[in-house]
Amino acid sequence: MAERTQVTPVGDVRRPDMAMERSIRLPRLRPATLVWFTMALILALSFFFPVFFMVTSSFKAESEIFATPIHWLPYDFQGLAQYQKAFDQVPLGRFFFNSTLMATIDVIVTVIFSAMAGYGFAKFRFRGQRLLFFAVLATISVPFQILIVPLYVQIFNYGWADTYAGLIIPGIMNAFGVFMMRQFAYSIPDELIDAARIDGAGELRIFWRLVLPLLAPAAASLAVIIFLFSWNNFLWPLIVIRSQQLQTIPVGMTVFIAPHNGQPQWAVSMAVSTMATLPVALLFIFLQRYFVAGLTMSGLKG
């Protein structure tokens, strides 16, 4: 069927149903299209199901979670009761605050300094440039697992263990960001920068007023993926933070995996999971273009 690519007339134009199909521009449903659609549907539903289960279960009564056959929607709708229970048991508001603080600082610092360094590497010629660039680039291929022991010792010696400084500072820069911004800074026309220089603008001003706005689309993609990585980061906050008040959501919510006072509370854990995923989901829905571009680039250029 697939080898038939020549456009063939679709039925009789005089037939009203066919005319209708044409007028509202429905794609012609060839058998191949139906096959692709069915495969996509199966893939989408099977991969989406656990997420659907998470959201619906957060509104169920505890006894419904393991119901077989499955309750597709809550029979005993709980409203936000499971969400309330989560806030009653742990300082969830603090976790959200800490995660937001860490992600915001990570995003702002990473984007600005990556843009600065990327611009510096792309548009200037100075001694040691290649060496410094390869040194920064090499850190991309260093797995974080390798760093945790010495980095923790270092943070511990600074007196930063179990503090915001220890939590946030080691993560505020990202070599991939530098690499990505350098690629985009190359495409800025030299004439534009030189024109600004002739107008007497200082180098810092040129960067801030001219280069950074030109890098904005790339910066948006970088910002979105840095937010995703920072928000979902687990290993480093787990190691560096001891006190509950300073924990981020991924680490703080692990208490919900274990039964609370001997009582399983899966509905509550689904409510926390839903809340923890909501910011990323909103970002994906509203900034999908940047989201996909960022993830793909971190892919292609990693």
Binding site: N232, M253, T254, S273, A276, T277, F284
Partner: peptide, 10 residues
């Protein structure tokens, strides 16, 4: 989208 901790919880 969900973090691996959320993935584990589900």
């Amino acid at each position: 989208l969900p973090s691996l901790v959320v993935v584990a919880t589900i």
